[in-house]
Design a binder for these strands. Structure first.
Lengths: 202, 202
DNA sequence: GAACCATGTTGACAGTGCCTACATAGCGTG
DNA sequence: CACGCTATGTAGGCACTGTCAACATGGTTC
């Protein structure tokens, strides 16, 4: 059979070649030509499946977001307590970032995908985790999306700082800081200490 | 006089040309050759002052960190209340990022500067703000560096998410989430709700 | 003034993204 | 079945990039 002229599913093959490249040779080595070569096609072939480099990157990012989503899902499986569940969710996030540093850089690189379904699903998990805690009266009432954004910012920021080598042990640090953030999210029995009603401070 | 063969302070001129370029034409337009041309010098001249592209980027980042530091300093000037001061500090951070998006991307881009004096100073401001609040018994005791890292992660994460267009109004959002985070940092009068002693949760 | 050397220039090389022109083959339609 | 149409591949070229080596210039020092 040798190599058929037409590949069959080159698009998929290119994405996987790109993923392999990014995992092995790092974030900056991702060139269209290198990807094409790895997939065993000519340097212009990718243009039949992607508009350009940015679109291939976006596809790689989307694929990676799916991995992130899976990591978060696995981390919370079977955890019922709202606080513990939320911590586990963040842990799953941070873990994925630390274990797939180059992919994480592609996901949030200079060309982030405009509309990523998987990315939205990841954020949705955070929102639902907040709402779950609110329903159980473990977290204070308030705009669950905003509180989820706060959680996202924390895990995202920690992951990036860790990837930049600015932290010692990002995983351990998150366990502490995640709980600390949740102390602010917890429902407060003493009304003199702050929240009255269902709004966030200020 | 025309143009003297030797520039005088080409290193400085290159950094400033790079800054202008990055501000005007954006983050990705930063090429050594473009910078050289803007400085009115041949394409290989920069190599007499920088080891390569990465080092020039690092210099631009360092310069930008100095701007960030200035923004943070200006934001807290004359603010005494620990909570308000800490919020203002974060505000100064977020504001700088939102007002200098391209520079912020260089600062935390794929090639972050290894040892940035200004970056350390920025972080130091956060640590001291925490310690200041602890001394005044406004914030709970605990590892001030860790708590500062939590604050950094929040502002850094929010800034990046805002720059990626994933937030509506990052500035406003920070005011709310910053206060929310501080609720977790506040000293808690009711010992039944959590912290005992001088350690962070978990 | 002569030698030195930091600083600039020129030219080249491999690699990049992207484009156009051409080749191949799988498909539907007569 | 044969014909063409079109999707998908290739080959080559363009302008640009970072980097290096060889050369030019001119300020500084003995």
């Amino acid at each position: 059979m040798s190599k058929p002229y037409h590949h069959g599913d080159l698009r998929r093959a290119l994405i996987e070649a790109a993923l392999e490249l990014v995992v092995e040779s790092g974030y900056e080595a991702l060139s269209l030509r290198a990807v094409a070569q790895r997939a065993g096609v000519s340097h212009a072939a990718p243009y039949r499946h992607f508009e350009g480099k940015a679109e291939l990157w976006a596809a790689v990012a989307e694929e990676s977001f799916r991995g992130l989503l899976a990591s978060m899902r696995a981390a919370v499986e079977g955890v019922d307590d709202p606080t513990e569940r939320h911590i586990q969710l963040g842990q799953g996030y941070v873990d994925y970032g630390l274990e797939h540093p180059h992919q994480y850089r592609v996901m949030f690189g200079p060309t982030p995908p405009e509309d990523s379904e998987a990315a939205r699903a990841c954020f949705q998990m955070l929102v639902e985790s907040i709402q779950y805690g609110q329903k159980r009266r473990a977290f204070r009432p308030g705009d669950s999306m905003e509180m989820a954004l706060g959680a996202w910012a924390l895990v995202h920021g920690l992951t990036l700082l860790a990837l930049d080598g600015r932290l010692q042990d990002g995983r351990q640090l998150f366990r502490r800081l995640g709980r600390l953030q949740l102390e602010g999210y917890h429902a407060q029995e003493d009304p003199s200490r702050g929240y009255k009603g269902d709004t966030l401070p200020d």
